[in-house]
C-alpha cells in the first residue's frame, strides 16, 4: 500500500512536469495548428540559463529560476520571429512550419553542444530532495511535492491569465479562429509572440525540474516526445486535455516502474498513445465543436 501511494505521488509529480511542457506545446498548436518540435529546445534553454546563473553568478534559485523563465520565454519569441513568422507571412501551409520547427530543434540542441558541451551536468542542490513522511502512509521526496506544487501554481496562473484578462480572451478566440480575432482589432503578431512567450516560460519551469530529476544535457529536450504523447492523448490543442493526458502518462509510467519493471515504462507510454489513436483519435478532450451550421 505504501509503495502504491508513493508511486501515485511520484506519478503525479512526473505528470505535472509533463503538463507544464504539454500545455505550452498545445497552446502553440491551438493557435498556429502545427506541432512545434522546437518546444523541447525551450526547456533546455531554461535549464542551461538556470544552471549558469546559479554556477557562474552565484545567484539563488529564485533569481536563477526567474532568469530562466524570462530567458526561455524570450528565446521562444525569437524562434518564432526568426523561423516561423517569415513562413507564416508567405503561406498558410502549416507543414512548412512543422519542418522549420524540426530544424530549429536541431539548431538549439547543437548550439548547446557547442556552447556548453555535450556532457551531463547536475544542477547545484538548490531544490530540496529530502525524504518526506506522509502521515506514516508513505515516504516521498520533497522534490516531488515541490514540482507538483510548482505545476499547480503555474498552470493555475495560466488559467487565470486565459480567463481573466483581455489578451487571455483574445488567445481563446484566436484558438478558434485566428483571422477573425484579427478582424476584432487584435494585433495577431503580438498575440502569437505572447503565446510563444508563455509556452517558453512554462517549458523552462519543466526544464528546471527535469534537470534536477535527470541532470541537464543538450538532448534533454527529447523528453518533449512524452509531453507530445500526453497532448495527443488529452486531445491536441486542448489545455485541460494536455493536463489530464500528462497526469495519466506520469501515473502510468510510475506505476509500471513500481509494480512491473522500469524498462517497460516507455512501452506503456507508447501503447497508451496507440490505444488512444485507435479508440478515440481526437483524444480525451478533442475538439468536437458543438456548432450549428
Amino acid at each position: 500500500m505504501g509503495t502504491f501511494i508513493q508511486q501515485i505521488i511520484n506519478g503525479l509529480s512526473l505528470g505535472s512536469v509533463y503538463a507544464l511542457i504539454a500545455v505550452g506545446y498545445s497552446l502553440v498548436y491551438s493557435i498556429l495548428l502545427f506541432s512545434n518540435f522546437a518546444h523541447g529546445g525551450f526547456l533546455v534553454i531554461g535549464g542551461y540559463i538556470c544552471y549558469y546563473t546559479l554556477n557562474l553568478m552565484g545567484a539563488n534559485i529564485w533569481l536563477a529560476g526567474f532568469a530562466a523563465l524570462i530567458g526561455a520565454g524570450f528565446c521562444a519569441v525569437l524562434t518564432e520571429r526568426l523561423a516561423y513568422k517569415p513562413i507564416r507571412e508567405r503561406t498558410s501551409v502549416t507543414l512548412y512550419l512543422l519542418i522549420a520547427s524540426m530544424g530549429m530543434s536541431i539548431v538549439i540542441e547543437n548550439l548547446f553542444v557547442i556552447i556548453a558541451g555535450g556532457r551531463f551536468r547536475a544542477l547545484p542542490p538548490v531544490i530540496p530532495t529530502a525524504p518526506v513522511d506522509l502521515f506514516g502512509l508513505a515516504t516521498t521526496s520533497a522534490f516531488d511535492l515541490l514540482s507538483l506544487a510548482a505545476a499547480v501554481v503555474f498552470l493555475g496562473g495560466l488559467q487565470l491569465f486565459l480567463t481573466r484578462t483581455k489578451w487571455g480572451l483574445a488567445i481563446r478566440a484566436a484558438a478558434y479562429d485566428l483571422r477573425v480575432a484579427g478582424l476584432m482589432g487584435v494585433n495577431v503578431g503580438r498575440l502569437i509572440s505572447i503565446v510563444f512567450f508563455v509556452a517558453g516560460l512554462l517549458a523552462a519551469v519543466g526544464g528546471i525540474f527535469l534537470s534536477v530529476r535527470y541532470t541537464l544535457y543538450p538532448q534533454l529536450g527529447a523528453i518533449t516526445i512524452k509531453a507530445f504523447v500526453a497532448a495527443v492523448i488529452g486531445g491536441l490543442g486542448s489545455l485541460p486535455g494536455a493536463v489530464v493526458g500528462s497526469l495519466i502518462l506520469g501515473l502510468a509510467e510510475m506505476l509500471t516502474a513500481g509494480f512491473l519493471s522500469s524498462q517497460l515504462r516507455d512501452l506503456v507510454v507508447f501503447s497508451l498513445l496507440v490505444i488512444t489513436l485507435i479508440v478515440r483519435p481526437s483524444g480525451l478532450f478533442g475538439k468536437d465543436i458543438k456548432e450549428k451550421v
Partner: peptide, 19 residues
C-alpha cells in the same frame, strides 16, 4: 457570421470591444 463558437455571447461581444 464567424462567431467564436466556444466563447460565450458576452465574451464574443467583449472581443468586439478589444481595441
Amino acid at each position: 457570421r464567424k462567431v467564436f463558437a466556444p466563447l460565450t455571447v458576452f465574451e464574443n461581444l467583449m472581443m468586439g470591444a478589444f481595441p
